[in-house]
Design a protein around this nucleic acid. Structure first.
Length: 233
DNA sequence: GCGACAG
DNA sequence: ATCTTGTCGC
């Protein structure tokens, strides 16, 4: 199975200053050049949701055929939630569960899509970049809203995009995946360039705003199906 | 000090 | 993210 760098995913001890410091060091290891398998054979979607009022983090992973976009296998992992949501430190909260879900895979994906930012982050280490450096796998962050940076409204056509800039740097792109839909915020996680991240994301979009990998995995991680049935009042 | 703030 | 029904609009 995929091996993860233990030093990149520390136990949460409440030290936010130390967490931010680690982000700065890991961000320096992010590779923004295209270093991914070609041709791409499989892509995965990885995401986390919560149960029991947030006490349990439920992570899910879905592996899809890169050409047909049909799911090949999927897994779910449940782990006790160890830390609260703190803007900018999302990855420290979700990575333990995400790694647990990844450990159940029968094979390693060529590329992983995550729900959230890649380098489009205050310290350039959103959850997709953190996951990428911790796993060594190519990764892309696809977020539904911005965390950091500004962009001009992209054109109305599918594929129209405009750069996301922050402090004079290009950190991602606002991409129109579907007409009349709010743009997706796409940024490199690891081993992929900004342009390729956009290209691959669009390649995975079918008839919905979200690309298939994150759309499918979101249903497994957050949808209310196989969750403890509620009592009717 | 004030406002912003992925999921 | 999650709590939650229906409703308006393409």
């Amino acid at each position: 199975m995929t091996a993860f760098r233990a030093d990149a995913v520390p136990e949460w001890n409440g030290d936010t200053a130390a967490a931010r410091d680690l982000q700065l060091r890991l961000a320096a290891e992010v590779v923004l050049e295209d270093r991914l398998p070609s041709p791409l054979r499989t892509v995965a979607g990885l995401d986390a949701g919560f149960e029991d009022g947030g006490a349990i983090t439920r992570a899910a992973v879905v592996l899809l055929d890169a050409d047909t976009l049909l799911p090949l296998e999927s897994h779910i992992a449940r782990v006790p939630t160890r830390m609260p949501y703190i803007p900018g430190l999302l990855s420290f909260r979700e990575l333990p569960a995400l790694i647990e879900a990844m450990s159940k895979m029968s094979r390693t994906p060529d590329l992983v899509f995550l729900d959230g930012q890649g380098i489009a982050h205050p310290r350039r280490l959103g959850v997709a970049a953190h996951f990428g450096v911790a796993s060594g796998l190519p990764a892309i962050g696809v977020a539904k809203t911005v965390l950091t940076g500004e962009y001009d409204e992209p054109g109305p056509q599918r594929g129209d995009a405009s750069p996301l800039r922050d402090r004079g740097e290009d950190i991602g792109m606002a991409v129109r995946s579907r007409p009349r839909c709010r743009p997706l915020i796409v940024s490199p996680g690891h081993r992929v360039s900004i342009s390729t991240a956009v290209e691959l994301t669009l390649r995975c979009v079918t008839r919905y705003r979200l690309p298939e990998p994150t759309r499918l995995v979101d249903r497994l991680a957050s949808r209310r199906d196989e969750r403890p049935a509620r009592r009717g009042r």
